[in-house]
């Protein structure tokens, strides 16, 4: 699996009103990029657009992968609530994609992934009996088993407590290292720890900020370069809020 890069350009419309004009976004192949911006600017809308999900929006322009292959069936998505099936076991949740397509569920692979994500012995638990962090790890296992080269993460860790969030970021960075990841986040620290490029979104367009690659992700949260970059990002976001 070689992950393609993504390129997206044009005007994004929500129903009959323009949401973001003059978009020109690049998501480098096999890297993490993040979308930052105030609430309602259209981050999640862009995520849905890349994933090919329906909605009251439309892109006047194009969204292409660098290898020219259609993105259909190539994108996996993981969101804040994890979207687990509450009635089904953890193992069933992880293998739901194969069931929905009519393929044979690869339970051996699912168990291996669960073990790798620290969920040994939980295969037959229901999501309701798990903690928030455990549920997000199940959702991550389900995302990974789909083996999609492009992954959209829509604020996947924002409902977790600080320590669990850091652990989940480390885990996700390790497990999704070779894929093209679009990370939608509110959290500048998360952006700096995980992404190589940040896109600051406003209604006028998107501005790229290359994050200092002092170390490969996940970067340490107490590292000077990380903290300096976090401060810079916060200042920029604050400036956008005021404008």
């Amino acid at each position: 699996m070689t992950a393609p890069g993504l390129h997206l350009h044009g005007d994004l419309w929500l129903e009959t009103a323009p949401l973001i004009r003059n978009l020109a976004l690049d998501f480098p192949a096999g890297r993490w990029s993040c979308l930052l911006g105030s609430s309602g600017v259209g981050k999640s809308t862009l995520g849905r657009l890349i994933a090919g999900l329906p909605g009251p929006f439309r892109l006047q322009g194009a969204c292409r992968s660098s290898d020219g292959v259609s993105l259909r069936g190539q994108v996996a998505m993981m969101a804040q609530d994890g979207q687990l099936l509450p009635w089904a076991s953890v193992l069933h949740n992880v293998t739901i994609g194969a069931r929905l397509r009519g393929d044979k569920p690869d339970t051996a692979r699912a168990r291996a992934l669960l073990a790798e994500l620290g969920l040994v012995g939980m295969a037959h638990r229901r999501p309701g009996t798990l903690s928030g962090g455990q549920r997000q790890r199940v959702a991550l296992a389900r995302t990974l088993i789909e083996d999609c080269p492009v992954v959209v993460l829509d604020e996947p860790f924002s409902a977790l407590d600080a320590a669990t969030r850091l652990a989940m970021q480390d885990l996700a960075a390790r497990m999704l290292a070779t894929r093209t990841v679009v990370l939608i986040t509110h959290d500048p620290l998360e952006a700096v720890r995980l992404a190589d490029r940040a896109w600051l979104l406003s209604s006028g367009g998107a501005e790229a900020l290359d994050l200092p690659a002092t170390a490969p992700p996940p970067r340490s949260y107490c590292d000077d370069a990380t903290l300096a970059m976090q401060a810079r990002l916060l200042a920029r976001l604050q400036g956008m809020q005021a404008a």
């Binding site: 994933a51 999900l53 329906p54 994108v75 979207q83 929905l100």
Partner: peptide, 14 residues
């Protein structure tokens, strides 16, 4: 869940 089914290319019956 409907989004997930679509991303996973679920058949209508499944």
């Amino acid at each position: 869940l409907a989004d997930m089914a679509q991303l996973m290319r679920a058949t209508p019956v499944r």
